[in-house]
């Protein structure tokens, strides 16, 4: 290595940014070239002194700033929980939205269809409300943050004894965010939260039967059956397997939501 090269690489070397072979070469040059070694020593001193002058002693100001921001965040959340949850931070808002959508979809659908409301369905909706309110009042987001469907399913099974059987996603577009346990119709339910192309979507699973879904539109194709409904720009899909009702809610297409139920069509 020449002195010219040594000087060219010196700063990256001192910053620990030089790759190993060059670093070794430069080190060797410094061992044999007193002039470059002296330059390195000078630059090292300058770097050290820069560290000192650029490192402010008094660090209480930023801690205070953070404390103020956190107080603001927490009080805003307190207010939002009591009234408008629109002002919630994105993540909580998305979760709230997903839950609200489910609620509106179920509730609005009953209201629109009118007629006698099956007792079971009414309490199903009521308990969704209760769960939603509890979710907001407790300021809870997810009890488990996980993008691993296997981990989340195991966690949900342990907590709720509901086999959520979250599917392994075939596309990166659909991401599992996390899970929480809740109750729907007094029945322990598994709740999972997803992002599909950045949009929120929820998954709920609980022990049940087609009586829970009988007013949704039943779709049978390819030997498989699912139920679907739409409400205010949102889609709800559901299926029943082995006495477990699984439902997914979001703004995306029926097909995309079906992927949350492990029922997406290939291709």
């Amino acid at each position: 290595m020449t002195c010219f090269e040594a000087r060219e690489y010196l700063f990256a070397f001192l910053d620990g940014e030089l790759d190993a072979p060059l670093s070794i070469e430069l080190q060797r040059h410094l061992e044999h070239c007193p002039e470059c070694a002296r330059e390195a020593e000078i630059e090292r001193s300058i770097r050290r002194q820069l560290g000192t002058v650029l490192n402010p002693q008094d660090a209480t100001a930023p801690q205070d700033a953070l404390a103020r921001v956190m107080a603001q965040i927490r009080s805003a959340e307190g207010r939002a929980r009591r009234s408008v949850w629109r002002r919630f931070p994105l993540h909580v808002r998305l979760l709230g939205l997903a839950a609200a959508v489910l609620l509106l979809a179920v509730g609005g659908w009953f209201a629109l269809r009118g007629g006698p409301r099956p007792e079971a369905n009414q309490s199903f909706a009521d308990l969704l409300v209760a769960d939603f309110q509890h979710f907001l009042e407790a300021g809870k987001s997810l009890q488990l943050q996980s993008s691993d469907p296997k981990e989340a399913s195991t966690w949900l099974l342990e907590r709720t004894h509901v086999a959520a059987a979250l599917p392994v996603m075939q596309h990166d577009r659909c991401k599992l965010v996390g899970a929480r346990s809740c109750k729907v119709s007094g029945r322990p339910a598994a709740f999972a939260f997803y992002e599909i192309g950045g949009e929120p979507a929820s998954f709920v699973a609980l022990a049940g039967s087609d009586a829970d879904l009988h007013e949704m539109q039943m779709v049978s194709e390819g030997g498989r059956t699912h139920w679907v409904d739409r409400c205010r720009g949102h889609t709800i899909v559901a299926c029943i397997t082995d006495g477990i009702v699984r439902a997914a809610v979001g703004r995306m297409s029926e097909q995309e939501l079906l992927s949350l139920l492990g029922m997406a069509h290939e291709g």
């Binding site: 650029l54 660090a59 801690q63 953070l66 927490r74 931070p89 407790a138 809870k140 987001s141 997810l142």
Partner: peptide, 23 residues
């Protein structure tokens, strides 16, 4: 008690000193 706020605080805390130095 909010886990998101707490997650945020935990994420920011280690960077406060460096951010201050930059600010």
């Amino acid at each position: 008690m909010n886990s998101l706020a707490s997650a945020f605080e935990a994420f920011v805390a280690p960077h406060v000193r460096r951010l201050w130095a930059l600010a």
